[in-house]
């Protein structure tokens, strides 16, 4: 059974069956803790080192521009 599950879940990573994706997402949502998913717009402001605060400083500076 374990071998079968490993193969099916590995295939899922290729096939991305929508039904199984829902189950997996529901499990991940329960254990995601306080991690906040950034939107694509917000991701543009994350600097190369991955520090979102640096990006937010740039965003604030842009807002203050006339």
């Amino acid at each position: 059974m374990e071998s079968k599950l490993k193969k099916l879940f590995d295939f899922q990573k290729f096939e991305d069956n929508a039904d199984l994706r829902q189950v997996i997402d529901s499990v991940h949502a329960r254990y995601s803790g306080n991690v906040t998913k950034l939107s694509l717009d917000d991701l543009e402001w994350v600097n190369a080192a991955g520090d979102p605060d640096m990006g937010m400083m740039n965003k604030d500076a842009e807002k203050k521009r006339p």
Partner: peptide, 29 residues
């Protein structure tokens, strides 16, 4: 074994499990 149908069957089987058991299987495998 590997088909879209078998993945849907697995999804259905997982949904029928008590939540904690479903969580353990997804996190493990």
């Amino acid at each position: 074994l590997l088909s879209n149908e078998s993945l849907s069957e697995l999804a259905s089987a997982l949904r029928s499990l008590p939540q904690q058991l479903m969580d353990i299987i997804v996190l493990r495998y």
